[in-house]
C-alpha cells in the first residue's frame, strides 16, 4: 500500500530555521537586513505599534550625548520595505489595559495593520511565561501565533500556538558567562528534524543588553553556520510561514483512500484552517510508474518529483477540504 504523508517541513527539508527581532529598533535593521538579503534568510520583526518612528532615551541631554543614548524605532515605511524583502511583521506585546486585554491587543493589531497595510498575525512576548499565560487572549485578539523567550527547539508535531525562541546573545551573565556560539542548536535541530527560532533585540556594534543583543559580525557568523549546517536540508522562512505550514499539516487528514494498479486516490479532510500555503506531499508509489502525476479536483495535473534522497515522490499543493487527489502514471495515460 502506498504510504501517503505530508512532509514535516516544506519541500521535504529535514529541519527549519527562523529568526525574529524584538522591539523594532532601527539600528537593528540598519545592520541586519543586508545580511538577510545576502544569505537569503527573510526575518520577522516585532514592533510596538505606538512606538513606530519614535525616539526614546534622554532627550534632555545635549546633542552629542543624545547621539549615544537615543534609540529610534522603525517607521512604517521601513517595515513595508522589509515586507517587500520577504519578511513578516509581528506585534510586540504590551498589555495597556489589564482589565480588557483582548480589546487592548485588538487595538494594537489594527493600529499596526493600518500603518503597514499588511495582516499582523504574531504576538511576541519578551519573557518566558507570558505567552502561555495570555495565549487565549492573544488568539481572541486575532494573533494566530505567540512567541515566547524559551531557549528550546520546536518539534514538527507540536500543535501549540506558542513558538519557543532561542535568544542570540552577545555575552551571557554570571554565573554562567555564556558567550555567543554561531553554531548553537543548529546541529541539534538538524539531528532532531525540528525547528529553531532565533530571537535578537538589537544588532549593533556595541550591544547594550548582552543577553539579548548581538553584533553584526556575530549575526553574520550565525547565518554562515545556518547555511553550512543546513546546506540543502534546511527550510529558512519567517516563523509565521513555518508555523502556518506546521499547523496546516497537523490539521490535514486523508480519507477514502482508493488504490488500484493504475491509480491512487484520496480525499482530504482539513479542519479549522484556511489553505494558507501549499503543503509538500510525499508518497511511495509502484516502482513501475515512470512519470507519476497528481490530478487535483480542479482538473489540474501536477508532475511529481523525486525527493532529494530518492526515497519517495513529492509534489506541492495547497490542501482544500474535501478535495480529491488522484495519482497516476503519466507515462501510461495523458494527464
Amino acid at each position: 500500500m502506498p504510504n501517503i504523508r505530508i512532509a514535516p517541513w516544506k519541500e521535504n527539508k529535514r529541519f527549519a530555521y527562523s529568526i525574529t527581532y524584538d522591539e523594532g529598533l532601527v539600528e537593528t535593521l540598519g545592520f541586519a537586513w543586508r545580511l538577510h538579503r545576502q544569505y537569503g534568510i527573510p526575518g520577522q520583526i516585532n514592533v510596538y505599534p505606538e512606538m513606530l518612528g519614535k525616539l526614546t532615551g534622554d532627550l534632555s541631554a545635549g546633542f552629542l550625548q543624545s547621539l549615544w543614548n537615543l534609540q529610534k524605532f522603525a517607521e512604517p515605511e521601513h517595515l513595508q520595505f522589509l515586507l517587500r524583502e520577504g519578511w513578516r511583521v509581528g506585534c510586540q506585546s504590551k498589555l495597556d489595559n489589564p482589565n480588557a486585554p483582548a480589546e487592548s491587543l485588538i487595538q494594537q493589531r489594527l493600529e499596526l495593520e493600518n500603518a503597514i497595510g499588511h495582516p499582523v498575525r504574531c504576538l511576541a512576548f519578551n519573557d518566558a511565561t507570558s505567552a502561555t499565560k495570555w495565549r487565549d487572549v492573544a488568539e481572541q485578539a486575532g494573533f494566530a501565533w505567540q512567541f515566547t523567550l524559551h531557549d528550546a527547539l520546536n518539534d514538527a508535531d507540536d500543535s501549540s500556538t506558542v513558538i519557543k525562541r532561542a535568544p542570540l546573545y552577545h555575552l551571557g551573565p554570571t554565573p554562567n558567562h555564556l558567550a555567543n556560539d554561531p553554531y548553537r542548536l543548529l546541529a541539534l535541530v538538524r539531528d532532531r528534524g525540528a525547528w529553531v527560532v532565533d530571537v535578537v533585540r538589537l544588532v549593533d556594534r556595541y550591544p547594550q543588553d548582552p543577553t539579548r543583543d548581538c553584533t553584526p559580525a556575530e549575526l553574520e557568523k550565525r547565518f554562515q553556520a545556518v547555511r553550512k549546517i543546513g546546506a540543502e536540508n534546511i527550510w529558512v522562512a519567517p516563523p509565521e510561514i513555518i508555523a502556518d505550514y506546521r499547523a496546516l499539516r497537523l490539521r490535514t487528514r486523508f480519507a477514502d483512500i482508493a488504490i488500484t494498479r493504475e491509480q491512487v486516490a484520496f480525499t482530504l479532510a482539513v479542519s479549522g484552517a484556511r489553505a494558507l500555503q501549499p503543503l509538500t506531499w510525499l508518497c511511495d508509489l509502484d516502482p513501475v510508474w515512470r512519470a507519476p502525476h497528481a490530478l487535483m479536483s480542479d482538473g489540474n495535473a501536477i508532475p511529481l518529483q523525486r525527493t532529494a534522497d530518492n526515497a519517495a515522490w513529492m509534489f506541492d499543493c495547497p490542501p482544500a477540504d474535501q478535495a480529491r487527489i488522484t495519482m497516476f502514471d503519466g507515462a501510461e495515460r495523458k494527464p
Binding site: D127, A128, T129, L149, H150, D151, A152, L153, A166, P167, G172, P173, T174, P175, N176, H177, L178, D181, P182, Y183, R184, L185, L186, A187, L188, T211, R212, A225, K228, I229
Partner: peptide, 30 residues
C-alpha cells in the same frame, strides 16, 4: 565552556531572563 542541565524557569531572571537548553554540539563546529 559550561556543560549544564538548565531546564525550566530561569534561576536568576534579573540577569538571565530566559530558560536555556544545553546543546551537546556547543562550540564543536566552531
Amino acid at each position: 565552556t559550561l556543560v549544564y542541565v538548565r531546564a525550566g524557569q530561569p534561576e536568576f531572571p534579573l540577569y538571565d531572563p530566559f530558560p536555556r537548553v544545553y546543546d551537546p554540539y556547543h562550540r564543536l563546529h566552531e
